[in-house]
Design a protein around this nucleic acid. Structure first.
Lengths: 199, 199
DNA sequence: CGCAGCACTGAACATTGTTCAAGAACTTTT
DNA sequence: AAAAGTTCTTGAACAATGTTCAGTGCTGCG
């Protein structure tokens, strides 16, 4: 396997991304070190900078995969099309919490990783974030037929961000966060409130 | 001024915290460097480690002051006691957004700063976070007389975290965040929804 | 004054991301 | 198949940065 240059390059890139994901799962974003990643991937330190631009880009690659997995998990959680909209939203929220709990560090990396201020996230990586809100607009539309498509898209982001905020503060154990043991019931209540109300 | 040892030590500590706040305002958490802080405070690099435990503790000190200022801003925003509960909540939310917009980097530092996993935040610093939720329980209690005091305290955290989540994703320009121009109106709608509904 | 303790200094150290010159490996040309 | 050219890999070197520490000076007290 991997005889020509292109292939070997892609294989090393792949090994590096996988190694980075393992390191990230084990030690979190702050514990991700270039030397540990390259050691795990079985290459020299400098090879990293030929396979990817730098460590930040490696994190973006891991994040893209995390988002893809999250998308799978969220879609799998959706009940059939004849379910009540509020049930779809509850299912998405619960699946989001479960994913975050089961993949805490790589999920956190999605939101804690920052590029230096002058650098900008490549377009393809920006788009992979849409899985977070893709499932929300449809059930929301049935609950809020009064909203225009633009207002709906906006509101879907708000609903996601609200749920995410509760989960984020809770999972980090920040002092103002909801205790973990109450997280699911509070998010259920929040989603219920956001869904049930009219007009 | 500052003749005895105790006083000089406290003065240097104060200068360091102020210098750190300025650096944090200018360059953000990732741009905070021990050498820049000590240069601004007018002392040698090593003096930092006599005045405070380390850089992390300096950030905690700045955060404590930020939280105190935030508390002042939030309390000042509250309408009189005869206002509708929903108006109190709206005022708090708007004041929160304004504070975040006007103090973006030091506000972000409140939520982005992490101690190494093995270290733990001193109790006095934990408590300073309560200003974020202190004003919420009272108006919420009038909207939800059905909830026990414990459930109310929990729900206050949930309400804060939901609003915070929307603000946080929006101000960081994360792809899934609400665009800044829509932030206030979306938060208004969210608070309205969380307040208006019954049972 | 003089001494004991403390604080300040800045050089040195450890860790870490990134670069780069040298050599190895692969591809193309002849 | 050999030569020439291109690209990749290696690991040492560099730069940035948090932290420590031995040396030096200052403070407070008898």
């Amino acid at each position: 396997m991997g005889s020509n240059r292109e292939t070997k390059r892609a294989e090393l890139r792949e090994r590096l991304i996988e190694a980075a994901e393992i390191e990230l799962r084990d030690k979190g974003l702050a514990g991700l070190k270039a030397r540990d990643v390259t050691a795990r991937a079985g290459c020299a330190l400098g090879a990293l900078y030929n396979a990817v631009e730098d460590l930040d880009m490696l994190v973006l690659e891991v994040n893209a995969r995390t988002l893809a997995k999250m998308g799978t998990a969220l879609r799998a959680s959706l009940p059939g099309p004849d379910a009540q909209p509020v049930e779809s939203l509850q299912a998405l929220a619960e699946a989001y919490i479960d994913f975050a709990l089961e993949n805490r560090r790589i999920w956190l990396a999605l939101f804690e990783h920052r590029l230096p201020e002058e650098r900008t996230v490549p377009e393809e990586h920006r788009q992979s974030h849409s899985v977070l809100i893709d499932g929300i607009a449809a059930p929301l539309a049935r609950l809020r037929p009064d909203l225009s498509p633009e207002a709906l898209a906006l509101r879907a982001r708000t609903v996601f961000a609200a749920v995410h905020g509760v989960v984020h503060l809770s999972l980090q154990g920040q002092f103002v966060g909801v205790p973990l043991q109450d997280l699911k019931s509070e998010v259920r209540a929040l989603v219920e409130i956001m869904a049930r109300r009219a007009g």
